[in-house]
């Protein structure tokens, strides 16, 4: 069971809703992924094209906990404003704090992320900050009252996978709140490794929406996250330098 603030989830996959080829593929991918948490963004409406379908209309949103992000914010102030706008929909009180500090790498601005998270915790939000994989930053965010910590595995949308498993494991060991690996996942094995390291969950988007077959990849991610979690709970064997035989050495018939 994944517990974030007052929420409980049986799925450990948090799925983004951006960049799917079409709404039908998106709905099927979301469905088969087993996710219970969907992320999305807040943007201005095109007031002159009111008839345009919206992705929410194609999903049974009652089934999901909605996790709006503050993507687009470059300052804490902007992030807090976006979070408040999202909450005013009456559909959600969770927020993924995302304050980007560098447009080329899309890496988060740690100072503004801290400031925004502090403010949003005070305002009563359930706060999940997207952060760089820095253990001290993660601890500071936890001390502020954040309900989960979401370090990136590698840059957003890069599909590079987990480039610093050591840093992630430090964060996982030292944080009491759930650590959800967010951003950079490319393959099911990346997601499984995150879970084997002890992550409480994985948030991904492009790895599924950008796959050749997003529906199949959504299922693959679901299975790999479950497998990785089971592996973590089972406890892996220590690595050894030399072989140890699996078959007994006694009782050989020709000795």
């Amino acid at each position: 069971m994944l517990r974030i603030g007052d929420y409980e989830f049986s799925s450990r996959l948090l799925l983004g809703t951006g960049k799917y080829p079409d709404f039908d593929i998106q709905r099927k991918a979301v469905d088969i992924s087993g996710t219970e948490i969907l992320t999305f963004s807040v943007r201005r409406m095109n007031i002159f094209e009111a008839g345009q379908p919206n992705f929410l209309e194609n999903l049974d949103i009652e089934k999901y906990t909605l996790l709006p992000n503050t993507a687009g914010a470059k300052t804490a102030e902007e992030a807090v404003r976006i979070a408040k706008l999202a909450k005013a929909s009456g559909l959600c009180d969770m927020v993924k704090v995302e304050v980007i500090g560098c447009q080329k790498t899309l890496l988060p601005d740690p100072v503004e992320t801290l400031k925004a998270s502090e403010e949003l915790v005070k305002e009563g939000f359930t706060v999940l900050p997207y952060t760089s994989d820095d253990v001290l930053l993660a601890r500071r965010l936890e001390e502020l009252g954040c309900h989960a910590i979401m370090p990136g595995a590698s840059p957003i949308g890069s599909g590079q996978g987990i480039i610093n498993p050591l840093n992630l494991s430090f964060i996982i060991e030292q944080c009491q709140v759930p650590v959800i690996v967010d951003a950079g996942i490319g393959t099911p094995s990346d997601a499984a490794i995150a879970m084997e390291l002890g992550a409480a969950g994985v948030l991904l988007n492009t790895a599924v929406s950008g796959a050749k077959d997003p529906v199949k990849m959504a299922e693959a991610m679901k299975l790999s996250i479950e497998a990785g979690r089971l592996g973590f709970e089972a406890g892996r064997i220590p690595k050894k330098r030399y072989a140890t035989a699996s078959s007994p050495v006694e009782g050989m018939s020709f000795s």
């Binding site: 983004g16 809703t17 951006g18 960049k19 799917y20 998106q26 992320t39 999305f40 963004s41 807040v42 943007r43 201005r44 409406m45 007031i47 919206n54 992705f55 929410l56 909605l66 709006p68 992000n69 993507a71 706008l85 999202a86 929909s89 957003i156 949308g157 951003a183 948030l203 991904l204 988007n205 492009t206």
Partner: peptide
């Protein structure tokens, strides 16, 4: 006046 809505995102 600002009119905003939800769009796909990660």
């Amino acid at each position: 006046i600002e009119l905003v809505h939800f769009v796909g995102g990660g």
